Computed example of a mutant assay.
Amino acid sequence: MRNKWAMRSIPVTVLFVVYLYILTKIILFKFGHVDLMFLLRQANWAIHDMSRLHYRLDMANLTPFRTIAENLRSHSVYEYIQLYGNIGLFIPFGIFVPYLTRGTKLDTWTYGLVFILSFALCLLLECTQLVCSIGMFDVDDLILNTAGGMVGCVLFHLIVRVTSPGKTAAAAR
C-alpha cells in the first residue's frame, strides 16, 4: 500500500513544484520572465535604502477587508478577477497539501496545516513584493489566498469522499 502511494506521489510532487513555479511567476513576475537575480538585486537595493522600504510600507494596505470591499463595490470585471483570482490561485495549494501529507481524514490537523502553510506562503510572497518593490503588500491578499487554500482543502476532502464511498480515506489511495 505504501509503495502504491509513493508511486502516485512522485508525479503529484512534480505537479506541485510546477504549480509553485507558476504561482511565483504570476504573483511576483506578473506573468513575465522569472528572474531570481532581479529579485536579489531589488532586495539588496531595498536593504541599502531603507527609506524606500518605509515608503513602500506606507503605501501598503494593512487594513483588513478594505481592498475586498473596494473590489466588490467597483463592479469592474478587472476588480472581480482580482478578487476571485486571489482565491482561485491558492485552491490547488489546498488540494496538494493534504494529498502530499496523506491528510485524507477530515480532521483539524489537516485544515490547520493547510491554513498555516497557505498563510505562510502568501505572507512570503507579499513580503517579497514589498521588499523587492515589485508589487503592493495587501493584507487582503493574505485573507483571500488563505481562504483559497482552505477552499482547496474542503474540495480535496469532498473529492475523496465522493470517489471512495464506504472506504476509509487512507485506503482510497
Rank of each mutant, 00 (worst) to 15 (best):
L121W: 02
G149H: 08
G149E: 13
T104S: 09
F31S: 11
F156T: 03
V17D: 02
V77R: 15
L23K: 01
M7G: 05
C153R: 09
R56G: 06
P165T: 13
R173M: 11
L121F: 02
Y19K: 07
I95M: 12
P92V: 07
L15C: 12
I116E: 14
K4V: 13
C132M: 12
Y19G: 08
L100M: 04
F96R: 05
Y78Q: 15
L100A: 03
V14S: 07
Y80T: 10
A43S: 13
C127P: 04
R41W: 10
A120C: 11
A6C: 05
W109V: 10
I159Q: 04
W109S: 14
I143Q: 06
S76P: 11
L53C: 13
P98K: 03
G85V: 10
I26T: 01
A120E: 13
F93G: 05
I27L: 12
G166A: 08
C132L: 09
I27F: 01
P92W: 01
W5G: 01
F38Y: 12
A69Y: 12
R102G: 07
F38Q: 13
I116W: 15
C132K: 04
V17N: 00
A170G: 00
L40R: 12
V154C: 09
Y111A: 11
S51W: 07
L89Y: 03
S9D: 00
F16W: 00
P92L: 05
G149M: 12
P64V: 07
V131W: 05
A171Y: 01
R41G: 08
T24L: 00
K105W: 03
L39W: 01
F156C: 02
M136R: 14
S118D: 09
A147F: 12
W5V: 11
I159N: 05
